[in-house]
Design a protein around this nucleic acid. Structure first.
Lengths: 245, 245
DNA sequence: CGCGAGCTTGATGCCGATCAATGCATGTGG
DNA sequence: CCACATGCATTGATCGGCATCAAGCTCGCG
């Protein structure tokens, strides 16, 4: 059903982890410059993915991991009967494609929510290199483990939180990650629709919209379509921790 | 808050992956006998965990992975405000502890639901060995990736299925895994309470109970407390795929 | 300017949570 | 052996949060 969709590929151009401003967020975290040079040898190309296009789709052969260099992605899985679920949103410095390692096929779609660029990391070469560089090996393991832990957090959210708590947790997570990337965290532009937020949070888009309106009424947020300003981050935090209940 | 709880530890005794009847399900899958000997060098001890005790708890230092040898476990995470969520059930041949790699601390509790034994796999030694044995390295990566994919499946379940579908999916998954281990799959004894099933599925225990009763009325299951007999596996499958809606 | 995608808001209904009572198996002590 | 406690499961009655259905609204764009 998911016919492999042609993805626009710009002419590959040379990139270097060692000179990338994301190196402290991304795969090269904590590596020496010699180690990074080795990594540069295998992370040789970038790929541009226009807004709305898929970087990969469920069912396609897995060959590489991808590091988001610029832009924003969602990943989503779907069941046979057509229901689908957004499993995550990825921003600069985050890895895509870990799902494909287990079966050598991707198990989800990765779709760009704005014009984006990724670094292509051929996985078998990465495995080879990580047998030589134990720092790289360890970091790869940590990244995969953290993805598992993140997923557990989402399960907790989906299994036990009510609508407003879910949205609050989502916003806190987003602002947190933006702050790590040098943004203020109190002002943000959502790159996804209400429906995509809802899919991620296990809610319908109307419920997401109502929750936004509620937060605005309560003076916690200022909401103008996709432009969000966080007025009371503490209140958001209280919502998540349930202290406010 | 989670004080490290003493876990009963039997005197370690020698074990061997190479002679383990789970080797085709577990970490040694697909390895040669020389490779397995190397693995045996580091997987040197077992540990017994009585029913109700924790193998590890959130916050404890991470040192090892554990392979379930006999018995049955649940893993659960909890939020600051005390809500908790069962994130998985593990049976023979499955690995526990992957969550701890990312931060060197466990992020969930692993609790035995019956008297159990695990093989202790010191993680740093496993990393060392997997730098030598690419088959082992690759298999470890596959195991972690599959855990991520499994988690995505649970998200889909929690985010978009209704109560009976969730229970049906859960039962199919259980019987599937039991069949892999040589059991019939049409008859099973649940090792967990209705409440634990509910936590995993994002439902209250009463809802789980009602769903069981409904399946019994419909002739899909025979339910006697924790003894379940699957009378109509196809109907269960239809429920999950939504064809029945 | 008008169209359409996405967002907001209201009215209604249903699924599953909640509250409560009872049943059933196991274990313990008199 | 029975009396009783305890933990778990079942079942019923009621309630509430979110889904659903249905209008409008906003904004960007051809």
């Amino acid at each position: 059903m998911n016919a492999p969709q042609p993805v626009i590929r710009l002419e590959p151009f040379k990139v270097a982890c060692s000179s990338c401003n994301l190196r402290e967020l991304c795969l090269p975290l904590g590596m020496s410059s010699e180690q990074m040079d080795r990594l540069d040898d295998i992370v040789a190309t970038r790929r541009a993915v226009p807004r709305g296009e898929a970087l990969f789709r469920a069912g396609e052969a897995f060959t590489s991991l991808y590091a988001v260099r610029t832009g924003f992605f969602k990943t989503c899985v779907s069941s046979e009967d057509g229901r689908d679920q957004v499993t995550g949103f990825q921003m600069a410095g985050e890895l895509l494609g870990l799902d494909g390692i287990g079966t050598d096929r991707h198990t989800c779609d990765a779709v760009a929510l704005e014009d984006s660029q990724v670094c292509v990391i051929p996985f078998h070469q990465l495995e080879d290199l990580s047998r030589e560089l134990s720092d790289l090996q360890r970091h790869l393991h940590k990244i995969m483990s953290r993805e598992i832990v993140r997923d557990h957090g989402v399960m907790l959210l989906l299994g036990s939180m009510r609508a407003e708590e879910r949205l609050a947790a989502f916003l806190l997570n987003l602002t947190q990650r933006l702050r790590t990337r040098g943004f203020s965290g109190s002002e943000l532009i959502l790159r996804m629709t209400r429906e995509e937020i809802g899919s991620y949070l296990g809610l319908k888009l109307e419920t997401v919209s109502r929750a936004f309106s509620k937060f605005q009424e309560d003076g916690i947020l200022e909401v103008k379509q996709r432009h969000i300003r966080v007025l009371d981050a503490e209140a958001l935090g209280r919502l998540v921790n349930g202290t406010a209940c």
